[in-house]
């Protein structure tokens, strides 16, 4: 991220406290992930230790330190979605996109397809439990997801059956 862009983001938050999450959120939204250089630059600019920022970024599943694909698919694995079959949806998605992921040692799940088109991540509850199981693609929420409806949804994002 350009230094100027980062400064613009920082300038949006004038409160002396509680601005870190807002700034990190804006970086995540703008870049799709949090580049290490940006995090280090931010540490200097707002005078917060890099260890503190790193702690926050690794705590929330919303933040990612790894670059992501063109479209980000987030599957909810919250309690309601889990019991309504989110695991099956994830399995189907993995086979459709030909990816296989595991929870990494940091407890996060993030897999990107070889062509860099899709990244699949896991979230804990969007607060849309009434439509469980739900998944989100680039910010758009899809409820009542199941393995059969997945291909039609993915096709809207340029996916084609192999």
């Amino acid at each position: 991220m350009e230094e100027k862009t980062l400064e613009e983001i920082i300038a949006r938050y004038d409160s002396p406290t509680g601005k870190v999450l807002g700034i990190l959120g804006d970086i995540q939204r703008s870049e799709g992930y949090i580049p290490r250089e940006t995090l280090e630059m931010l540490s200097v600019k707002i005078d917060v230790r890099i260890s503190q920022l790193y702690s926050i970024v690794t705590f929330y599943s919303f933040f990612s330190l790894k670059p992501v694909g063109e479209h980000v698919i987030t599957i909810c694995m919250g309690t309601a979605c889990h019991v309504r079959g989110a695991v099956g949806v994830l399995d189907a998605l993995e086979s459709l996109l030909d990816i296989h992921g595991d929870t990494t040692e940091d407890g996060k799940f993030s897999v990107t397809t070889k062509d860099n088109k899709f990244t699949v991540e896991i979230a804990r509850c969007f607060g849309a439990c009434s439509m469980a199981p739900v998944l989100q693609i680039d910010g758009t929420l899809y409820g009542y997801a199941n393995p059969d409806t997945l291909p039609a949804i993915l096709e809207q994002y340029g996916w084609r059956a192999a």
Binding site: R36, R49, I50, S51, Q52, L53, Y54, S55, T58, F59, Y60, E105, D106, G107, K108
Partner: peptide, 19 residues
């Protein structure tokens, strides 16, 4: 100094230096 902090969350939590 702020050299170390908690990393990750829940059962994955550890204490170490950033990155």
């Amino acid at each position: 100094a702020g050299a170390i902090n908690f990393i990750n969350r829940g059962p994955y939590t550890v204490v170490n230096t950033p990155f």
